[in-house]
Every structure is written in structure tokens, then in C-alpha cells.
């Protein structure tokens, strides 16, 4: 699903990713661990080009999205991302947060189709073989209604539909992060990238967020998770990547990685955190 080929990233003179090659297959839950500053976040942010790779390729569904010429916005719709700091839109209600992107994208598509239809109609006036028009039967109102219903369904799933009209500043960290997760889900992503989703949470809220991620994992969602929660990593991962100094030093099944790490640096890291 995602092929990462010799990915490199430098900030100024500092090379943070030093040639990363790996493949993320459909349905996998890849957990990335490693010491602070090893480049885990940068790696994750390169996967959806929030950071533009300095060199190398990110092949997502057959397209190299690291190529600056592709329209990255279209491909990002299929990759959800969940941030350490939640990053809910502060000027939108909970429902507004979830609806914003799907609604905007579908309404824009509808508008584009209508504009194209005008041109096709003009073309059809003169041409012998008529071109078919795009279907524009769903109205803006219907689209709004559908997106809204989907958002409410997702909110119900995490059991806080009563917060639909609340603003993010009034929510607990756990609520914010779960909403951030379903905001990503509302786009029907093929893969979700998590960057330390529980690191900014009070301890008593970590559980509810991990539970939701676990559910998604069980439903077969493809995931890449950067985390310091080793217990969770071991439980949910299908594969563990150990990063240090901008490189993947070990790639292993969770059982083998946690019980018998091969790389000396991985061994040292685990002895510190476990």
C-alpha cells in the first residue's frame, strides 16, 4: 500500500532521515519506536508529505506522492493523521471539525462537475457524437445531510454525541483525541498515521484513546503508530520498526522484538523503557 524507498530528509544541514526503505501493506499495524530525536515523527510526517522528503519516494497506491508535481491534497484524503496535540480546529464545533473536510471536498466536486457540464453542453451543441454529462443529482443540501449523518454516527460510536455542538476548548484531552481520530475516519482513509496519540494525555485518559485505536485495528484499518506505550505496541502491532539516528535498525514481529531484540541499540533502548 505504501512503499517507502530510500527516504531522506534534511532540515538545513541536519540529516534527520538517512535512507529509509520499507513497505506498509494493507491491514498491517506498524508500530514505530525509538529514542527521542531519532526521526520517528519526521518519518511519519513524510509519509503524507506534511514534510516534503528531501529525496526518495513514497509510493502510495501506485503514485509517488513525494513527487512535487502530484496534487498532494487528493492523496492525503486517503491518509488520516492523528497528532500528539490533537489539533482540533478551535474555531469549529465538534461536529464542524468532523464535517469540514468531507463536506468541503464533496461540495467542491459537485461544483466542478456542474462547471464541466456547462462546457460539455456547449461541446454537444456542435459535435456529432454527444458526450455524457456528469451526474449532479445530489443537491448541496443532500450532501450536507449525508455528511452530517455520517459525522453523528461516528460521534455516537465514541459515545459523545451530546458534545456535537461544543467547542474543543471545553473538552477533555481524551475526548479531543477521540474526536481527532473520528475526524480522520470521516474521510474513509485507507491508512491512519498516529504520532504519539497518547503522549499529551493525562494518565486516566490514555485508556479510552487506546481502546478506540484498538477497535480500529481489529476492524482491519491499516495503521502506522509512533508510540512510547510499549505494552500497547506489543499488543496491537503486526510489525515493529525500531528507529535510531534516522535509520531503521530493526524490523521485527512484536513478540520477537520485545523478547529478543537483535540490534544492540534496540536492546539498549528496550532495557531503558521496559
Amino acid at each position: 500500500m505504501i512503499d517507502v524507498i530510500d527516504l531522506r530528509k534534511s532540515f538545513g544541514g541536519l540529516e534527520v532521515l538517512k535512507g529509509i526503505t520499507t513497505t506498509i501493506r494493507e491491514g498491517e499495524k506498524v508500530v514505530v519506536v525509538g529514542p527521542s530525536g531519532s526521526g520517528k515523527s519526521t518519518f511519519l510526517r513524510c509519509l503524507n508529505c506534511l514534510e516534503d522528503p528531501t529525496s526518495g519516494s513514497i509510493i502510495f497506491e501506485g503514485v509517488d506522492i513525494a513527487d512535487m508535481k502530484v496534487d498532494i491534497n487528493i492523496h492525503r484524503r486517503h491518509m488520516g493523521m492523528v497528532f500528539q496535540q490533537f489539533n482540533l480546529f478551535n474555531n469549529k464545533t465538534v461536529l464542524g471539525n468532523i464535517m469540514l473536510a468531507p463536506l468541503h471536498i464533496r461540495l467542491t466536486e459537485l461544483r466542478k462537475k456542474k462547471i464541466k457540464n456547462v462546457f460539455i453542453k456547449i461541446y454537444n451543441l456542435f459535435a456529432g457524437n454527444k458526450k455524457p454529462l456528469y451526474e449532479t443529482n445530489t443537491t448541496r443540501q443532500q450532501i450536507k445531510q449525508e455528511v452530517r449523518e455520517n459525522a453523528l454516527r461516528l460521534l455516537k460510536r465514541i459515545g459523545i454525541e451530546d458534545k456535537a455542538d461544543a467547542y474543543p476548548s471545553t473538552l477533555s484531552g481524551g475526548q479531543k483525541q477521540r474526536i481527532a481520530i473520528i475526524r480522520a475516519l470521516a474521510m474513509n482513509p485507507k491508512v491512519i498515521l498516529f504520532d504519539e496519540p497518547t503522549s499529551a494525555l493525562d494518565p486516566e485518559m490514555v485508556g479510552e484513546v487506546l481502546d478506540l485505536i484498538r477497535q480500529l485495528a481489529d476492524e482491519g484499518m491499516t495503521m502506522v503508530i509512533v508510540t512510547h506505550e510499549m505494552g500497547f505496541a506489543r499488543e496491537v502491532a503486526t510489525r515493529v520498526l525500531f528507529m535510531d539516528d534516522g535509520q531503521i535498525l530493526e524490523e521485527n514481529t512484536p513478540d520477537r522484538f520485545f523478547s529478543d531484540p537483535q540490534n544492540p541499540r534496540a536492546r539498549e533502548f528496550l532495557s531503558k523503557v521496559l
Binding site: 503524507n48 491534497n73 492525503r76 497528532f83 473536510a101 475526524r183
Partner: peptide, 21 residues
Amino acid sequence: DPGQMEAGRAVGLSYTVTMMK
């Protein structure tokens, strides 16, 4: 917070749309 722009871009909105909305 720059995280607001990042979150907008991460759900597939363009720079301009995220800026304005």
C-alpha cells in the same frame, strides 16, 4: 498554532482553504 494548518492539510484541504476556513 501551526498545528491548525497541519491538521487542515492532513485531512486533504489545500493551503488556501485551510488558511481561509
